[in-house]
């Protein structure tokens, strides 16, 4: 909404479009390739971008429908891909909602309140999650194995364990939200407090509505991290029907018979939840919410 417009704005707009278009095609090329492989007959990783022998076999198998080849043989779907997708979405939604709730409230405390030990706590959270995750898997397994003996839904091979384990990522999100809170002028809440609002009301009715863009970003990030999570899920989940898609999809390439076509179809499916979540969330990532909030 800048009122002053330089003359060269049209040329600049054109350049921006050209640059973005070039970059986008570079970025999207590998993804187009994956889509192309999933529609190709046979299970080869290479070939032309536009499938020569178009086939829906891989998609039908990925969606759990048995596929009849032209020669009459019927191929059964090898893995429950849709179930894996559902597992992934379930774990991702629950853990990201929990992460968002925990991170927002803690970030408020860290950004606006004064208390003892704030600095070591914040820095500690940032530092301690730097332990190489792959090398702490043994400890993680032992921990949840023991927990499972007391609390059933937190044992090995439960989604509860995976959700609780993924809450560890909350430290990073607290830093993100805290940084955003601190860039919002505190006098907005002070004005509300002067008018008799409680701390909770100032947080809930003043700060939260202003922070929707960053909350959406954090939700997407937490969602993505959960869908992508591999090392922890591969250790904590055992049964085939409990696996998440990121772990399950590996099984296509596990043996010598590498099924690239089926793998590609599963890969495209695995991209769906994040794309949908982003499409839903992105309309809230808008600026100018604080515009005109503080005068003088």
């Amino acid at each position: 909404m800048a009122m002053v417009q330089p003359r060269s704005v049209g040329v600049r707009r054109l350049w921006a479009h050209l640059a973005l278009f070039g970059f986008v095609s570079l970025i999207v090329f590998p993804l187009l390739l994956v889509i192309s492989i999933s529609f190709r007959e046979g299970n080869f990783a290479t070939g032309s971008l536009i499938p020569e022998n178009f086939s829906l076999e891989h998609w039908s198998l990925a969606l759990g429908i048995p596929w009849e080849r032209p020669d009459g043989t019927i191929v059964q779907p090898p893995f429950p891909v849709l179930l894996w997708l559902w597992n992934s979405i379930k774990v991702a939604v629950v853990s990201s909602v929990l992460i968002l709730m925990l991170a927002t409230t803690s970030a408020y405390a860290f950004a606006r309140m004064r208390f003892k030990g704030k600095e070591p706590l914040l820095k500690g959270m940032l530092i301690f999650q730097m332990f190489p995750a792959v090398l702490s898997l043994v400890a993680l397994y032992a921990l949840f194995d023991r927990l499972g003996q007391f609390v059933g839904w937190l044992g090995i091979n439960t989604h509860g364990a995976l959700i609780v384990a993924s809450l560890g990522a909350v430290a990073l999100h607290i830093w993100t939200i805290k940084g955003y809170f601190e860039s919002i002028d505190g006098s907005l809440e002070e004005a509300a407090m002067v008018d008799g609002a409680s701390t909770w009301q100032a947080f809930r009715y003043i700060l939260l509505p202003l922070s929707i863009p960053i909350l959406m970003v954090v939700f997407i990030l937490a969602f993505v991290m959960s869908i992508m999570e591999y090392p922890m899920a591969s250790v904590l989940l055992v049964d085939e029907h409990k696996l998440t898609l990121a772990v399950g999809a590996q099984q296509y390439l596990a043996d010598h018979n590498q099924r690239w076509g089926n793998f590609a179809a599963a890969a495209v499916l695995s991209g769906l939840p994040i794309t949908v979540a982003f499409l839903i969330c992105q309309r809230w990532i808008i600026g100018g919410l604080t515009a005109g909030g503080v005068k003088g």
Binding site: P30, L31, A267, G271, I274, Q282
Partner: peptide, 30 residues
């Protein structure tokens, strides 16, 4: 704010993040 079609660009640019890294790495290997 002068740029049109931001939502489309935004969605396309985020796509590498939509596919789990573990899957796209294997495709890059190929």
């Amino acid at each position: 704010d002068q740029l049109k079609g931001k939502a489309v660009y935004r969605t396309l640019l985020i796509l590498p993040y939509a596919v789990p890294a573990i899957i796209s790495i294997l495709f890059f290997k190929g």
